[in-house]
């Protein structure tokens, strides 16, 4: 029930931010669409504690995001360098690494962070194993039980 209410409030805020028109008829139609979306989500059975995951992560998320942005900028510079140096300078590699996260949410954040940093892409996720393709071989070594893994493990601790 708590998740349903928080989903409705989020959707209503989203509608209000996007609309920009606040007269009676449009507000009524907006409320109607929010109810319709909540009904569809209820029928799809996707309302659970994971539909609003940010509620219990909110306190720790900004520090992780700042670190991730720094990491994205650094790896962008690296990939740009390799684009201009040409294909002789790259050394693509494919390897399976272990993820140490316990919850599904932690694993998803880990795989998404890997894909979001250019130069590494998470291809497959089975159990604890993440299949990673990287532009440079040493990037994978840096990911395996590296700082990103440690930070996400810290993130998912309650």
């Amino acid at each position: 029930m708590r998740d349903t209410i928080s989903l409705s409030i989020t959707l209503a805020l989203f509608w209000l931010a996007n609309s920009g028109h606040y007269n009676g008829l449009l507000l009524f139609l907006g409320a109607l669409s929010v109810l319709f979306v909540v009904y569809i989500a209820y029928r799809m059975d996707v309302i659970d504690h994971e539909s609003q995951p940010l509620l219990h992560l909110t306190a720790k998320l900004p520090a992780y995001c700042a670190w991730l942005i720094k990491e994205i900028i650094l790896s962008n510079i690296k990939v740009v360098k390799h684009v201009w140096l040409g294909k002789q300078s790259i050394k693509p590699a494919l390897k399976t690494i272990k993820s140490n996260q316990v919850t599904d949410m932690g694993k998803v954040i880990f795989a998404n962070s890997i894909t979001l940093t250019p130069g590494t892409v998470a291809i497959d996720l089975k159990g604890d194993d993440v299949l990673v393709h990287a532009l440079m071989e040493e990037d994978i070594a840096a990911l395996d039980s590296g700082e990103m893994d440690r930070r996400i493990c810290h993130l998912e601790k309650p």
Partner: peptide
């Protein structure tokens, strides 16, 4: 522009995906 050139220059699909990654993030 770098991402677009990388899309043309890199040798196979998986490396091209990294080039597209630059244009999608930063």
């Amino acid at each position: 522009l770098t991402g677009g050139i990388g899309l043309l220059r890199f040798p196979d699909f998986y490396t091209r995906m990294h080039a597209a990654g630059i244009t999608d993030t930063l």
